[in-house]
Design a binder for these strands. Structure first.
Lengths: 382, 382
DNA sequence: TTGAAAGCGCTAACAC
DNA sequence: GTGTTAGCGCTTTCAA
C-alpha cells in the first residue's frame, strides 16, 4: 500500500502521541510508591491528596500534583479496585447491541455515567443474533449465556448494573437478593428494588390513533407484532382507548398480528384491506414498509388513496415514498434516566435507611418515557 | 404499574436467578484462600489447578473442581490482574458507536475475542456526536477526548487495543513506541507495527461501475463524499479504472462532491443531470436517497428513465422505490479479521524475534476486505 | 505433588 | 499534617 497518493490527507495526521511515553518507565508505569519517594512523602499522603481525603499542606499538595503531571502518573485501576472494593465501574448487559434501539441507549448511558467518573463496560449477550426471536422461551439457553456474564461482572466487581433489553417484557434476570444496584432498561423488572425505564407505548399509540381519527379515519387497521408482546399489547390498548374516547366501536377484525418484519406487514395488509380500512397503524416501521409493499402492488397510493403510519422512527421511515408518519423513540432519554437512577442508588448506598422508604409498596418503580410523533406525508385527511 | 394484565407474559418469566446467591457469603465472594481451606490444600495448589500449571494429583484436582462448582467460585479479576499483569482484557476505542458501521464491527470483534477468553471493554469517543464532521482537523479537541481514554486503558492494563474508526483515513493515534499490541480497524494506521483492516473501496467501486457499463451506461455521474476523504478518493479511482478498461473517456465534469448526506446527494444530482448522465453512482446510500429525491422532483423514474446505485447497503436501501442496487459492507468480516490480527500479536508476544521479521519493509500491513454487490432494481439496461 | 512466603499497587486504621 | 502498618485476592519463586 503506497500512501503517497494520499498526501492530501496529511494535514489530518496528528502529531506523535506522547502521553504514554511519559507514563512508561521501560514498560512499567510509575507507581504511587515511587511518586511518594520522588516527593519525599509517604504513600499515604500521596493517596490522600489524590483522593482529596484528609488535608495536606498546600505546599506538599502542590509538590505532589506537579510530580503527577510531570510523570504522567495514573493510579493503577486494578490495585485501587482490589483494595477499595469500589471500582467506579458499571456494567451494561445488553441483550443485543445489534438491535436498532441499543446503540443510542448505550451511548447515552455511557455519556452520563462517564461524566460522573464511572467507567462502563458493555457485555453483549447477542441473544437475537444467536436465536432470532425464539430465545425468550428457553430458559436454559438464556441462562447459559447470562450466567457467565453475571459471574464476570462479579469477578470484575462492578459497582452497578444496567440490563438493556432488546424489547419490552418482564425480565427476571436479577432476583430480590441481587447484591448490586441495578436498573432495568427498556423492559420491566420484577423486583421492587430494581426500577424500570420503558417507553410509554400506550400513550404513544393513543396519540397516533387519535391523530388518525382527527383526520377522519374510523376504520383503522391495527398491524401488531407478536400477540403476546408487551409493546403489542400496550399499543393495542392505546388504539382501543383512542377509539373509545372518540365513540368508535372497536372491531376485532381490524387487528392483525405479525412478527415485526416487513413480510409480516405485507401479510397483515393483505388480510386487513378487505375489511375496508382507510388507514393502517403499523406498530413498527418495518411492518409499515410491508404495508407499503402490498398497497403498491394493489395500485393504491399511500397518502392519496389510503393512509399508513408506523412506529419507531427508524432511519428507513424518512425514505419511504411518501415519507412515513411515525413515532419517535426517546432512546437517549431512556439512557439518561437509566443512568440517573443508577447514580442515585450508587450515591445513596451509604445511607440505606432512606433507600428503603421508596419501596414500601413492594411494587417496582416504573418510569414511562413519552415518545413523540413525527408527522410526514403518509396520512391523508378524509 | 399493575402487571396483572400481562399474565400472558408469565410463561416467559425465568425462575429465580441463583448463581450469585451461591457465590456470595453475605456480601462477599468466596476467595481462593477460603476455597483452599475447604479443600484442605494450600492456595498455591488451588491456583495451580485452576490455571493448569504444574500437575496435581487427580484426586486433589477433582476435589478442588468439585468445590469450585459447589461454591460458584470465580477468581477475582482485580486481584488476578494486579498480580499477573495480564488482564485478558482488550479495549476497543470507537470513534463513535452511533456510526452505522460500528455496532456490527464491535459485535463481531467481541464475539471472536470472547470466544478466546478475552474480555472486551468499549470506549466511545463520541467524536461525531460532539463535533459532527469537523473534528478531524482539530488536533487539540481530538486529543482532549482521546488522551484520557488512553490513560484509562493503561490504568486498566488491557492486553491490547483495537481502534475503530468512523470512516477511513490515516490515523496516527498511536506512535511507534506504543507499548501495547494494537490494530487499526476501518482506517489506516501510520505505524509499521499496527496493521490496518479496511474495505476495498477501489475494487468495490470498480465492480459497480463495470456493472453499470455492462448495462450500457457510458455517461455515469460520480456523486462523491468529501473530496479529501479516502473513501471518496479510492472509489473515484475505481470508477476511473472501470471507465478506462472499457475505453470510455473520463469526463471530470461528471464528478461532484458532497458531504455524504441526503441533501448533498440531491445537490449533486441537480448539478450532474444537465450533463446528460444516464446513471448516477452515489457513493453512500444516503446520497443515493437524495438523488432519488431530485429525480422524482424532475418526474424521472429511477430504474425506468434513469439509473442510480449506492454504497453501504444500509437498511434504508431496501426500502427505496425501486429498491436500490448497492454495495454491501463486510462489517462482520472486518471485525473478525481485526480480532484475529490482535490475537496473533497477543499470542506471539513471547517469541518476539519472529514478530519482527514481518515488518522489515517498514510498511504497515493493510488488509483490504472485499465488499459484495447487491443487485436490486434501480439500474436499467439501455 | 504440595506448601510457605513474598509481593503486585493501592487504601484504611491508627498512630505520631 | 504525615507516616507506619496491614492487607485486599491472587500468582510466583523456591523449598520441602
Amino acid at each position: 500500500m503506497n500512501f503517497s497518493k494520499f498526501q492530501i490527507e496529511k494535514k489530518i495526521i496528528v502529531k506523535q502521541y506522547s502521553v504514554y511515553s511519559m507514563m512508561m518507565k521501560g514498560d512499567v508505569m510509575v507507581t504511587l510508591k515511587q511518586l511518594a519517594k520522588m516527593c519525599n512523602v509517604s504513600p499515604t499522603t500521596v493517596s490522600n491528596v489524590i483522593n482529596g481525603k484528609a488535608k495536606a499542606s498546600e505546599e506538599t499538595k502542590k509538590r505532589i500534583m506537579d510530580m503527577i503531571k510531570e510523570t504522567g502518573y495514573k493510579p493503577n485501576f486494578m490495585a485501587k479496585g482490589l483494595r477499595a472494593k469500589k471500582t467506579q465501574m458499571i456494567a451494561i448487559i445488553a441483550e443485543d447491541i445489534a438491535q436498532f434501539s441499543s446503540p443510542p441507549i448505550i451511548e447515552s448511558i455511557m455519556d452520563h455515567l462517564e461524566r460522573r467518573g464511572y467507567r462502563v463496560t458493555v457485555h453483549n449477550l447477542r441473544l437475537y443474533d444467536r436465536w432470532a426471536d425464539t430465545w425468550y422461551d428457553q430458559e436454559k439457553a438464556y441462562h447459559s449465556v447470562l450466567d457467565p456474564v453475571i459471574q464476570d461482572i462479579f469477578s470484575v466487581q462492578v459497582d452497578g448494573v444496567i440490563y438493556l433489553a432488546g424489547h419490552s417484557r418482564i425480565i427476571r434476570c436479577f432476583n430480590d437478593d441481587f447484591p448490586l444496584p441495578a436498573v432495568m432498561c427498556y423492559a420491566f423488572s420484577d423486583s421492587s428494588k430494581i426500577p424500570s425505564v420503558v417507553i410509554d407505548d400506550e400513550k404513544s399509540a393513543f396519540d397516533m390513533v387519535s391523530y388518525l381519527v382527527e383526520n377522519g379515519h374510523r376504520r383503522i387497521g391495527f398491524v401488531g407484532g407478536r400477540a403476546d408482546n408487551i409493546h403489542t399489547i400496550k399499543r393495542l390498548l392505546g388504539y382501543q382507548r383512542a377509539l373509545y374516547e372518540n365513540g368508535i366501536l372497536f372491531d376485532p377484525k381490524l387487528v392483525h398480528y405479525g412478527d415485526w418484519s416487513r413480510e409480516a406487514g405485507y401479510e397483515s395488509a393483505k388480510a386487513l384491506l378487505p375489511e375496508n380500512v382507510t388507514a393502517f397503524f403499523g406498530i413498527s416501521d418495518l411492518m409499515a414498509g410491508g404495508i407499503y409493499d402490498f398497497l403498491e402492488e394493489k395500485g393504491l397510493k399511500v397518502g392519496k388513496d389510503i393512509s399508513v403510519c408506523g412506529f419507531d422512527n427508524e432511519s428507513i421511515s424518512a425514505f419511504f415514498r411518501p415519507a412515513l408518519t411515525t413515532t419517535s423513540l426517546p432512546l437517549a432519554k431512556i439512557g439518561e434516566i437509566s443512568a440517573r437512577l443508577l447514580l442515585d442508588k450508587l450515591e445513596n448506598i451509604n445511607n440505606e435507611e432512606d433507600d428503603d422508604k421508596g419501596r414500601e409498596d413492594n411494587n417496582p418503580k416504573v418510569i414511562s418515557v413519552p415518545c413523540s410523533m413525527v408527522i410526514r406525508n403518509s396520512v391523508l385527511k378524509i
